[in-house]
Design a protein around this nucleic acid. Structure first.
Length: 865
RNA sequence: GCGAAAGUGGCGAAACUGGUAGACGCCCUGGACUUAGGAUCCAGUGCCUUCGGGCGUGGGGGUUCAACUCCCCCCUUUCGCACCA
């Protein structure tokens, strides 16, 4: 190793990073324009909520996005890579109350901080397209879009049972209730009846489902399957039971019409109109219904919940047999699905089975599986599998599938019922009773009813002078804001005080990036230039929330003529979480690493000296005391080290385990790269090799250079960023032994040429990963054009040809020897060489060769008898 | 319960179409060079071994000349949904 040259610069990430960030900004290197003749590539990352500081999850998300954006730019695409802020939401209101400020001030101040933090990462955004969703003009155009959907009949208002979050004092959509708790507050959700605004996402249920098929290959299987289940399409029969002694009938929905003759009772939901009617003059029924409604909706509550029912005394009349069966109010029937009433077949439905057992109701087997005879008295559980029908009159002997078809056909022909499709998906409730959101632009007029605000009177602005108390909606309490005149009749009227769910803003922000300055919601020409998004990168937590809403909203806007494509996001990459070890003290709970001291093997709490246990690594969170502040890493090691570690430690879709010595490893590699390129740059100048050298060892080195181009290209293409880095590390390791010979005065020109080509290759290939250090080294190598405008290298096919290959000789599938042979060696020659190989002789002695399996370029397997 | 993904050294992970299991990095061990300041460089590093070799990709079977990879059964973990008729 040559001694350190004092004139040679040390790697100083802080200086380099500031310098190149300033250059890119001044050069407008990442500006994207529609007039650029190159093919477009739209790379989108999920915009952050401006909560205050960026966290490692953001760093990972945006590093991955930036790598792909920079790679595609080097490949010659006109890349749109925008960034903005998902800026409405409740934390701003809570913070405003606590800090006695205004949500707007708090939000914009956070945005300033976070923008600086993102800029310190060297992300290649087109910052001129930046916006926050709380900007008055974004809110304005969103209100206009809302009215367009209103005109299309995709918006409606209805009285409905809502999920009420008692902590956040607002309504939540079904998607926002997790385990019976508010997705944000974690408070147990209550049921409440309120007039609410809905977007008719169910009108697109089928298309949203169909579209998932189109996304096969581009979207992760998990996300597609989660959305499929969320939409929950099922096909079945809807028909009605007559009720003895009553005019009205009892409509039910079933996916198992084949079990129709096994019905022995009916069950209805507690909220069912018929239940209410029974309860009107029956206090016992009333008590039962109340008990049902107060039961929790949490997972454990449901699991523990016994099947319970209340006999209404009413009798339903079977449409085919005419048999009388009792009608129960049952605690497990959902009003929100199907008709809120079911036909009960205890022999073939587990819930009905449990219910029948409890209330000693008859069990009637009508499906017999092959090979065994079901006995209703012996059954321990319902039989839900396929089989042949019995006790079903004219349908006896049919298999389950054809019975379904026959029975549905029979019902249709006789006018008894119809084939219907049901979805689990509900319409999207967007009303929020909060201040820091976009007002719904509707006016309530006592004479005219609901009147949309005329487009020329938009926007409905949020009042700035509000008193936030955290209780109820400040817009309701504002002295004057809601008072207005009806645009239709001119009489005194009131504004809608609900604001829109913040998922509305994130449902079209990717369209607005295409034309952020347009004086209308969307400019179809520019939107259609960039859309669809070629690659979307974000967290899996939005699999059914944002990603379903946005797909719906996009399709609705398409039907308003504002965008042409059907699906907004062609490819989706969901990055894994960033995790870290947790430390726990029995006395003080979660501990930060600096609250723990090490003595020998043991870890002890600095507060109480109790032994601290190292828990398994979990998602970084403040509550678990296992967060690492990205700013500390960027200030200590530089953004390039942080980026390299994030990309190297795991493939993007997997969870990433934060590891301090792994960060050191990334730092060490960048230093090795720095020193190597410095040394090569200091050698007498030789243009980079473009021909094969005469020296065989140098031919191998040049081959390695070109193999690395190939490998990294393939790895980036298939989003295996970690192995791409490994490949460049190998190349740098391989170059090491040549640095000393190259520093000698008699070093051959072809060595200098090969090394220069190698250094340039390593630097270009790493540019999307670590953009600052590579720009700097590129300059050191004598280039005056910035690296971000260079072209991604392509391997020279001639250089890729290895002259000698090492192949493996196996005996009965076990590795016994390696042979190094010329690339063009024939099978016969290799077989002869293998049989002569000394290492093989003990294994071959005295045994006959049954056959030899020859895999060209790889191995020879000698199979002995 | 239903659906999806995953299980490989002390650790993070590689292995692309069935063809050298453990690339690359971390940790650790030895050595070189050293006063510089988060060092650097070289070598070793799956387990066992009588040094011939044997055993190894959650477990058990199978297909194949050859299995981390394909098939069957089972176990475990993570994520999502959850009385959806």
């Amino acid at each position: 190793m040559s001694p350190q040259d004092p004139t040679r610069e040390k790697y100083n990430p802080q200086a380099i990073e500031a310098k190149w960030q300033a250059f890119w900004e001044q050069d407008q290197s990442f500006r994207a324009t529609e007039t650029d003749p190159r093919e477009k590539y739209y790379l989108l990352v999920m915009f952050p909520y401006p909560s205050g500081r960026i966290h490692m999850g953001h760093v990972r998300n945006y590093t991955i996005g930036d790598l792909i954006a920079r790679y595609q730019r080097l490949r010659g695409y006109n890349v749109l890579h925008p960034m903005g802020w998902d800026a409405f939401g409740m934390p701003a209101e809570n913070a405003a109350i606590q800090k006695n400020t205004h949500p707007r001030a708090w939000t914009y101040s956070n945005i300033d901080t976070m923008r600086r933090e993102l800029q310190s990462m060297g992300l290649s955004y087109d910052w001129q397209r930046e916006f926050a969703t709380c900007n008055p003009d974004y809110a304005h155009w969103e209100q206009e879009l809302f009215l367009k959907l209103y005109e299309k009949g995709l918006v409606y208002r209805k009285l409905s049972q809502v999920n009420w979050d008692p902590v956040d004092q607002t309504v939540l959509a079904n998607e926002q209730v997790i385990d019976g708790k508010g997705w944000r507050s974690g408070a147990a959700v209550e049921r409440k009846e309120l007039s609410q605004w809905f977007l008719r996402i169910t009108a697109y249920a089928d298309e949203l489902l169909e579209g998932l098929r189109q996304l096969e290959g581009g979207w992760p299987e998990t996300v597609r399957s989660m959305q499929t289940h969320w939409i929950g399409k099922s096909q079945g029969l809807e028909f009605a039971f007559a009720i003895e002694g009553l005019e009205e009938t009892l409509p039910v929905y079933t996916t198992r019409p084949d079990t129709l003759m096994g019905v022995t009772f009916c069950s209805i939901a507690a909220e069912h109109p018929l239940a209410k009617r029974v309860a009107a003059d029956n206090p016992a029924a009333q008590r039962f219904i109340q008990a049902c409604q107060t039961a929790g909706t949490s997972e454990e509550a449901i699991e523990r919940l016994e099947k319970r029912g209340f006999d209404t005394g009413l009798q339903a009349i079977h449409p085919l047999s005419g048999a009388r069966v009792p009608i129960f109010i049952a605690n497990f029937v959902l009003m929100g699905y199907g008709t809120g009433a079911v036909m009960a077949v205890p022999a073939h439905d587990q819930r009905d089975f449990e219910f029948a057992k409890r209330y000693q109701l008859p069990i009637r087997v009508v499906i017999q599986p092959d090979g065994e005879l079901l006995d209703p008295l012996q059954m321990g559980a319902a039989y839900t599998g396929p089989g042949r029908l019995c006790h079903s009159g004219i349908f006896d002997g049919l298999d389950t599938e054809s019975a379904k078809q026959k029975i549905m056909a029979h019902f249709s022909q006789q006018g008894l019922g119809k084939t219907t499709v049901q979805y689990r998906l509900r319409d999207w409730g967007i009303s929020r009773q909060r201040y820091w959101g976009n007002p719904i632009p509707i006016i309530h007029c006592p004479a005219c009813g609901l009147v949309p605000v005329p487009v020329d009177q938009l926007p409905v602005p949020l009042p700035e002078d509000v008193t936030l108390t955290g209780n109820g909606n400040p817009l309701v309490r504002h002295p004057s804001w809601k008072e207005c005149l009806c645009p239709r009749c001119g009489q005194a009227a009131q504004r809608e005080t609900d604001t829109m769910d913040t998922f509305t803003e994130s449902s079209w922000y990717f369209l607005r990036y295409c034309c952020p300055d347009f004086a209308a919601p969307l400019d179809p020409a520019r939107v259609n230039h960039w859309m669809p998004v070629d690659q979307y990168v974000g967290g899996i937590e939005h699999a059914v929330l944002h990603l379903l809403y946005a797909r719906f909203f996009h399709k609705a806007l398409r039907d308003c003529g504002l965008v042409a494509c059907d699906e907004p996001f062609t490819r989706l990459l969901t990055q894994g979480m960033v995790r870290k070890d947790t430390l726990r003290c029995p006395e003080h709970g979660w501990r930060y690493p600096e609250e723990v001291s090490q003595q020998g093997e043991g870890l002890y709490c600095t507060a109480c000296a109790a032994p601290v246990t190292v828990g398994r690594n979990e998602k970084m969170s403040k509550s678990k005391h296992n967060v690492v502040d990205p700013n500390d890493i960027i200030q200590g090691y530089g953004a390039d080290t942080a980026r390299l570690f994030m990309l190297f430690a795991a493939p993007p879709e997997q969870d990433l385990e934060w590891n301090d010595s792994g960060v050191d490893g990334a730092w060490r590699f960048l230093n090795r790269l720095w020193r190597m390129v410095q040394e090569i740059a200091a050698l007498p100048f030789q243009p980079p090799a473009c021909r094969m050298p005469a020296d065989p060892a140098l031919r191998m080195l040049r081959c390695k250079t070109h193999e690395t181009m190939d490998k990294v290209s393939r790895d980036v293409q298939r989003y295996q960023f970690n192995t791409g880095i490994s490949a460049v590390m190998e190349l740098v390791n391989a170059a090491n032994e040549w640095l000393a010979p190259a520093a000698r005065p008699d070093a051959p020109a072809e060595l200098l040429a090969v090394l220069r080509e190698l250094a340039e290759t390593a630097v270009v290939l790493l540019n999307p990963y670590v953009p600052h250090i590579t720009e700097e080294l590129w300059r050191h190598l004598g280039h005056h054009q910035p690296l971000c405008r260079h072209r991604w290298p392509q391997a020279d096919p001639e250089a890729l040809q290895r002259e000698e290959i090492t192949l493996v000789v196996q005996i009965n599938g076990k590795l016994r020897a390696r042979l190094t042979v010329a690339r063009e060696a024939t099978q016969a020659a290799i077989e002869a060489a293998a049989l002569a190989e000394p290492a093989l002789q003990p294994h071959l002695a005295g045994r006959t060769i049954q056959k030899m399996v020859w895999v060209p370029g790889r191995l020879l397997n000698i199979v002995l008898r």
